[in-house]
Design a protein around this nucleic acid. Structure first.
Lengths: 139, 139
DNA sequence: TATACTATGTGCGTAATGCATATAGGACAC
DNA sequence: GTGTCCTATATGCATTACGCACATAGTATA
């Protein structure tokens, strides 16, 4: 049993005993840099960002729509993005389109710096695990 | 402004993220596999695990003692470790010594599998970021 | 007795976030 | 023109992870 009861925490609300609830995303607030990164390619609205996220290869991070909208509004409040209502509606309610700001670009850069440090740390840990396992493989 | 600052994480004590000072814990519950991994080398008590954690190279994850004790107790409740009071006291209150169980070893293995997936995902994201930045450097 | 170091543990507040739900425009079937 | 579905945005609620403050207690020593 993996820590999160498998990688399917987007599908079924399975049974898991203990006090361990479903294991959500591993990296905190990853949605924030992910959305900012996607907006580098051009303005997008929230609903479209879902598919873009999957294309990014974050399939292990199936995100609830509400999370995306929330993060986008937070980012706008922080000045990292600006939004406007899309005029050219294409069969549906109006879309709020988000665009990356220079400040947001820098913020993303900081995020990436941080994520690299996290990745390095992870690699060190995994390497240590592999090393430590050499003599433990008697099992 | 780094991702963690100004939102109640790193800003509390004058320190900010970006290289120095404590940073917000990026990977959820990393303490769990970290402690299990350390226990692979042999039984240890909570207080000793602090130093061991630092030696592990998780300096970016300065952990509060309470967190360690809490995780250890949770792990024991899950059957991943077993504890016993250390007889040979060495100048201080009794120590509760934790030992990895076979189930815990497997659980750690699962954790590591999961962390590798996270590391891969992170690498893909960072690579995508680097790629996407090629044409954006006009700014 | 007081202080300091070791060692374990609890209480509390908050950020992050999954899930359910609300609201509403547009398209199409009936 | 009503019902249904898809698109699209948004709010409410409960849970989890976890940092920080604090409580408890054994030992040593001044």
């Amino acid at each position: 049993m993996p820590p999160g009861a498998g990688r399917g925490w987007g599908g079924g609300r399975g049974a898991h005993g203990r006090g361990r609830g479903p294991q959500p995303r591993r990296i905190r607030r990853l949605l924030e840099p992910a959305l900012l990164h996607l907006l580098r390619a051009g303005p997008l609205h929230g609903y479209a960002l879902v598919g873009a996220l999957e294309d990014l290869g974050l399939e292990a991070y199936p995100t609830d729509l509400s999370g995306i909208y929330r993060v986008l509004r937070d980012l706008e409040e922080m000045g990292m993005v600006v939004s406007s209502w899309d005029e050219a509606s294409s069969g549906g309610p109006p879309r709020r389109v988000y665009e990356l700001t220079p400040v947001g670009r820098q913020y993303l850069s900081d995020w990436v710096y941080d994520l690299r440090a996290t990745a390095d740390m992870l690699d060190r840990f995994l390497h240590s695990y592999d090393q430590g396992g050499l003599e433990e493989e008697s099992d």
